[in-house]
Nucleic acid binder design. Structure first.
Lengths: 173, 173
DNA sequence: GAAATTCTCCGCAAAATTTCCGGAATCATG
DNA sequence: CATGATTCCGGAAATTTTGCGGAGAATTTC
């Protein structure tokens, strides 16, 4: 019995079976895994793996394949979490425009709670962070408050999305 | 004059010249860019590009090449930022062990401020998040406080590290 | 339940890419 | 300016990707 026969497809949009999930797991770990190797892992021919991966890309499940660079090697030694707040709603649009073309901002999330946005920022030094804060806070009129947390160390920082059902998942969900 | 001649190497560890940075920028955008295309972009032969990329990998500047999956396509609709706190230092080790093998935790940072750690977590539903919090808070003895922020929307979420000097960089750095 | 449609899978061959090599050219050093 | 290290190059071999046509299975339709 093949792996495919052991599983069954869901009926939701992404419609992934066990083989798809296995392929995604392998490609998340190494985006350059050859189709031959993938095929060996899931028990499919090279051309079949090609079909599947192409469809996963077409369906948008695989957004892209990217080289991950080392922040340490690039001497981006400072990682900071910055909360940003304002009261005037007109502040948001220019703020987001500023965020979009600022490469040092890796993430920008609209969050619940006392603050408006949360930024994840990488710089080389505290001096750079200081200059960055001045550029953002002073550069975007309306930004009133910021609070900066410095990351002392990162125990985990992965791009891998969870593919299997978590063990703690509520059984009635 | 070649591109190489226009730049000059630094003397720090990673020792990247303009061509290296250009290659890294291109591979950050598309990890499957062929050496032929990379060579056309930087003005080098295919084999030379191969040499450079291999060295960038060996030096650890390129940590790996990964397929990025769509959280939306995988129905991971909930993104949460969770602060975790405790007073007993003995709590840290089992907490980190728990974090390591929990796929729903994408990031875990040791941060300054009132909290000990910051987690970035993706789940399918609020119900899953509830179960996750119960598993982490109750599952790790010593964890006393948590605070959860829900991400309403993400204006930016990139893996691309900044490669060029920022415009606001302090000139005396 | 039979026919038709769709889907998945396969092998194969062409095209593209990667990889490795020796040697030329360039750069750094003493 | 000699020497050694590094970078670059073209080309050939190995690997990989890609695009077929068709077989087989599953699903749908009548």
């Amino acid at each position: 019995m093949s792996i495919a026969a052991s599983g069954h497809r869901n009926h939701w949009m992404s419609d992934l079976d066990d083989i798809d999930r296995k392929l995604l797991a392998l490609l998340q770990e190494n985006g350059r895994t050859s189709y031959a190797e993938l095929g060996k892992a899931v028990g499919l021919a090279v051309s079949s793996v090609n079909d599947r991966v192409r469809k996963l890309q077409d369906r948008g499940v695989i957004e892209g394949v990217y080289a991950a660079l080392s922040a340490e090697a690039l001497r981006l030694d400072l990682l900071a979490i910055i909360f940003v707040g304002w009261t005037d709603p007109a502040t948001e649009a220019p703020f987001l425009a500023r965020v979009a073309d600022e490469p040092s901002i890796l993430e920008c999330h609209h969050v619940t709670g006392a603050w408006n946005y949360l930024l994840k920022v990488r710089t080389h030094t505290t001096r750079d962070l200081e200059a960055f804060l001045a550029a953002i806070v002073k550069g975007v009129p309306g930004v009133q408050r910021t609070e900066t947390l410095i990351v002392l160390s990162s125990a985990k920082e992965t791009f891998h999305l969870p593919l299997e059902l978590p063990a703690w998942r509520n059984p009635r969900a």
